[in-house]
Design a protein around this nucleic acid. Structure first.
Length: 954
RNA sequence: GGGUGAUUAGCUCAGUGGUAGAGCGCUUCGUUCACAUCGAAGAUGUCAGAAGUUCGAAUCUUCUAUCACCCACCA
């Protein structure tokens, strides 16, 4: 059988993956040793709308490495896959599709029909990402594939899981424990999707904005003396004013002002605190008067020191209004258009005036009042802003300023301001007073903090642990209701009086409210509420399943830093709140995959690398190996196709080493350690054990890049560069015993390479495993080795091979530098060779000759002139190539080497001559320095001798 | 404003106390029977700057500079 020269990834990957799946290799517990501990990873569920991007490829490669590694080590392993229903994202996709297809809109078709459409869409497109994960080689137990909406009402056949039960049960339990409550609060409102969103779903972005300054006239034309002082108390401005100056970036919200606030210590406004002032906008006849109050919130140093208070449209103002009993007038509808409902403005304004003057009011009444003047009703909020500015300015109530040209113009500061945007809709978020459901996070956050502080749950790297703790220590209530249709509907029913009945089902709710007519809350839960239950939910909770007992708490979570708050923190809080246990023991947080210039990959920048395209070009193994090799903890990785090509070449290198083994009958290892008598064989067995220890240590510490680099260096730098070359004389010219031994050793070594590389490069290794022998199991279930360097490494063999390699390298280097033709075999002379050197030479003469291109060796008392000299530990070698030698060049070569050596020796002597070093440094460091110096001095002496000979020649 | 991190070869990055490494790129050479997706040889660094701790600092401390990211309600 002749192997191809390269691995055909495109042909093999699908075939191999199918074979694994067909054989059930990824099933929970596959390849587990009896009584083995469990190892479980929950996949971060990708959105059901999603397709595989580089971040997924990275994240899942790391998980697959951990899973395959544990599975080969005989753990009872489960990699639990699944998808997230992704409320907003999915609803958006389906709505867009309905529009494209000319179908009725969501509102036209109604809730039930729409949800049915989403399920249809899911059935049609939801499998995309699963197939892409398979392309990557992800060894998930697909038979257990979960979905966060499975079992929800309306779920079609094939979606019968009980995730919905888990979500509803948790809500009901938390509700009855008082951990979930409903209330009217100022929340982040997304006017595009017309739903509340949580703080985390808001992106604050600096955008160009403006700050206007307006005069709020005092009621009844009253005046006061406005005095401004500098830091020393000297009066810098004193004037009579009949207004108070207010700065705002959002003039349209003036319509909903309930007060003007100043700091209690602000003496400028002391004379007018408690008086009324007029909002300078709206029909003249019904100008609203509002009180001037004190509150600690205004900063006297900023702006005019006076702040308008619009409780219903600003988070700070909301707090002030709540403290001061100031009414909060809602000005906008769900699309953030100015309200167009309720009584005419005149009527509403009159009632508001009574309230401002002290009349009692209820929250509901205030909320119903529409204080948008008739001419602004129904306008978009930004259009309304322009109109308000225009009207105030026209009336002369803008604060004026002088330009450089001496013109007097309205004071408008153009400056960047932080604007909140919806992370999905990208529209400006409007704070809105609405009824929403909240998780009282203060009451469940404790265990999630304690577990990480105590080390019960480890978050790596440490910087992410800090970020996690800091966020949880300052946690805010979590708004979990969404005004969407795609999601878990809140299990609360209301009677006509607004009483709440929270129950697992409508029947149960009815039992709680006999004789009442109930209507169900229309809202659904935040997607992250359900994904927060992913660990228990996917294992069958609330049923007491075998999987739950076997795999929970899970072992490791591998996730991106961008969802530490969204997901990791919520899982921690929720799992502790619901089952009182940690969801996982280790959290490995990885960084972002960026493009080769370090830019975040984004569709709009057009710099997105598609992992599937890369897999098609370079093979999944190359993509995986690249990501692994770059996975240094806590740092973003910049991915370039060139690098992937390099690791694809590594696969080819491995392939050809295996091909060489196959051509030389070095196959068929049964996994048992071969007997080795020849030095090269003893040496490589030790090196193999050494790299196995390195790989295990690295993977155990989540140092994926260390594992990849150790394997790369071993396979390419040791096995291919040296062992394969060393083996040639034995395989081709050796006696039968040497040949057999070397075949067995090489077969074993190559197998070990395949085993150890398999978690990172599953496809090419499985293919070679199949080609190189008849096996009891596929590689995916092969036994992971446990050899130790202590058991296998042979110091004698190590020393000898190190000497041989060094000699070969020195001869090659010398040859190249004096331009001995690469193909030319030359004779070599040797002198002063010590016993160890002699022994090493004798047992390795064949391969030294072959690799250094030497045709004969002769022992001499001293090297003649006209030799190029190669100095190694315990001996000097000379290449008598007088006719080829350029004296000056050889002199330069020797001097350069000597110079380097002397610099190093200088450093070593400096240390060793320092009594404090000898006194303070550890024994082994001192000893090492001494040995090092001795070796270098020996080599330097040989070089000096060579220079002398050269001088005679010259 | 608060926090976290980064700064090492031309590029991308490893390297947490013992005198600096890898891959890629570059230069020269090579049709050796595993591999040109290869081999051999080679060049390249005041480890951002300054001060300190130490026998010894890329590594620990402090400060400075530049960059990046996260969080935050200054109207």
């Amino acid at each position: 059988m002749a192997m191809d020269k390269t691995f055909n990834a495109a042909e093999a990957e699908g075939r191999l993956y199918d074979a694994w799946e067909k054989a059930g290799c990824f099933a929970a517990g596959a390849n587990a040793r009896p009584g083995a501990p469990s190892y479980c990873i929950m996949i971060p569920p990708p959105n059901v709308t999603g397709s595989l991007h580089m971040g997924h490829a990275f994240n899942n490669t790391l998980q697959d490495i951990l899973i395959r590694w544990h599975r080969m080590r005989g753990f009872d392993t489960l990699w639990q896959p699944g998808q997230d229903h992704a409320g907003i994202a999915t609803q958006m996709v389906v709505e867009r599709k309905l529009a494209e297809d000319g179908e009725p809109s969501r509102r036209e078709m109604g809730r039930e029909a729409f949800v049915e459409k989403v399920w249809e869409w899911k059935k049609h497109s939801g499998g995309t990402i699963i197939n892409q994960l398979k392309r990557l080689g992800a060894s998930c137990d697909w038979s257990r594939n979960a979905f966060t909406m499975s079992g929800a009402p309306g779920a079609p056949e094939g979606e019968e899981g009980n995730f919905h039960d888990a979500v509803i049960k948790v809500f009901v339990d938390m509700y009855h424990k008082g951990q979930i409550y409903r209330g009217k609060r100022l929340v982040n409102w997304d006017p595009h999707f017309e739903t509340a969103i949580s703080d985390l779903e808001v992106e604050n972005v600096e955008t160009p904005g403006a700050m206007w300054h307006f005069k709020y006239p005092l009621a009844g034309g009253e005046t006061y003396t406005y005095v401004e002082r500098d830091a020393d108390g000297n009066v810098v401005l004193e004037e009579e004013r009949d207004y108070i100056s207010i700065a705002t970036t959002r003039p349209e919200t003036m319509l909903g002002d309930g007060a003007v606030a100043v700091h209690p210590s602000d003496e400028r406004y002391a004379p007018i605190v408690g008086k009324l002032c007029e909002i300078p906008v709206g029909p003249k006849a019904q100008r609203r008067l509002i009180p001037i109050i004190t509150d600690d919130y205004p900063d006297p140093e900023f702006g005019s020191g006076a702040v308008k208070i619009t409780g219903a449209h600003d988070l700070n103002d909301y707090a002030v209004a709540a403290r001061g009993g100031i009414p909060m007038y809602r000005l906008m509808d769900t699309r953030a258009h100015m309200r167009d409902d309720g009584a005419p403005y005149a009527e509403a304004a009159a009632r508001a005036q009574e309230i401002a003057e002290g009349a009692g009011f209820t929250e509901a009444e205030v909320d119903a009042l529409n204080l948008v003047p008739d001419d602004l009703r129904g306008l978009d909020r930004f259009t309304a802003r322009d109109k308000v500015v225009e009207q105030i300015t026209a009336e002369g109530l803008a604060v004026m300023t002088e330009t450089d040209d001496g013109d007097t113009v309205p004071l408008v500061e153009r400056k960047p301001i932080m604007q909140p945007f919806g992370d999905r809709s990208k529209v400006v978020i409007e704070p809105m007073l609405t009824d929403q459901w909240f998780v009282d996070t203060d009451r469940i956050v404790g265990p999630a903090i304690d577990a990480v502080r105590s080390g019960e749950v480890r978050i790596m790297p440490d910087q992410d642990r800090k970020v996690y703790l800091h966020w949880l220590e300052n946690i805010e209530p979590w708004c979990i209701s969404r005004q969407l249709w795609w999601g878990h509907r809140i299990p609360v029913w209301y009677d006509a009086d607004g009483n709440q009945y929270c129950a697992f089902s409508e029947e149960e709710a009815r039992e709680m409210a006999p004789g009442k007519t109930l209507t169900r809350d229309p809202d659904v839960l935040d997607t992250w509420f359900s994904s927060g239950l992913w660990p228990i939910g996917t294992l069958g909770w609330p049923e007491d399943t075998e999987e739950l007992r076997r795999y929970f708490p899970t072992s490791t979570l591998v996730t991106g830093f961008d969802i530490i708050f969204f997901w990791v923190a919520r899982m921690m809080m929720m799992q502790y709140a619901v089952v009182g246990q940690k969801p996982f023991s280790d959290v490995y947080v990885h960084a972002l995959v960026r493009d080769e210039k370090g830019k975040k990959m984004s569709k709009s920048l057009g710099n997105v690398l598609d992992p599937i395209e890369l897999i098609e070009e370079y093979g999944a193994d190359a993509v995986r190996f690249t990501l692994t090799a770059m996975a240094a903890m806590g740092r973003d990785l910049k991915l370039s196709p060139q690098r992937i090509a390099g690791y694809r070449n590594f696969g080819t290198k491995l392939w050809n080493a295996a091909r060489f083994a196959e051509m030389n009958g070095a196959t068929g290892s049964d996994g048992r350690l071969p007997a080795a008598t020849h030095t090269v064989n003893r040496w490589i067995l030790g090196e193999t054990a050494r790299v196995r220890e390195e790989v295990d240590a690295a993977l155990g510490a989540y140092r994926f890049n260390d594992a990849a680099n150790a394997l790369y260096a071993f396979v390419w730098g040791k096995v291919c560069d040296w062992y394969v070359e060393f083996s040639k004389p034995l395989l081709m010219d050796g006696d039968a015993a040497a040949r057999a031994e070397t075949q067995a050793c090489m077969a074993w070594v190559i197998d070990q390479c395949l085993v150890m590389l398999h978690p990172i490069m599953p496809f090419i290794t499985e293919e070679l495993w199949g080609l190189l022998g008849t096996r009891d199991t596929m590689l995916v279930h092969a036994d992971w080795p446990g050899h130790t360097a202590a058991g296998l490494a042979d110091p004698e063999a190590d020393r000898e091979m190190t000497w041989v390699i060094s000699l070969i390298e020195n001869i090659r280097s010398a040859r190249a530098q004096v331009h001995v033709p690469a193909g030319l075999y030359v004779p070599v002379l040797v002198t002063e060779l010590d016993a160890a050197g002699q022994a090493a030479w004798e047992s390795n003469a064949a391969l030294i000759k072959r690799l250094a291109r030497i045709d004969s060796i002769e022992r001499v008392d001293s090297l003649p002139r006209g030799c190029i000299t190669v100095a190694v530990e315990g001996g000097s070698f000379g290449l008598p190539v007088a006719d080829l030698i350029d004296v000056a060049e050889e002199k330069a070569r020797l001097e350069k080497t000597l110079g380097k050596l002397e610099k190093e020796m200088g450093g070593l002597r400096g240390r060793l001559d320092n009594p404090k070093f000898l006194q303070s440094a550890p024994e082994d460091v001192v000893e090492e320095a001494r040995e090092n110096l001795a070796v270098k001095e020996d080599e330097a002496a040989r070089l000096r001798a060579a220079l002398e000979r050269l001088a005679e020649l010259g």
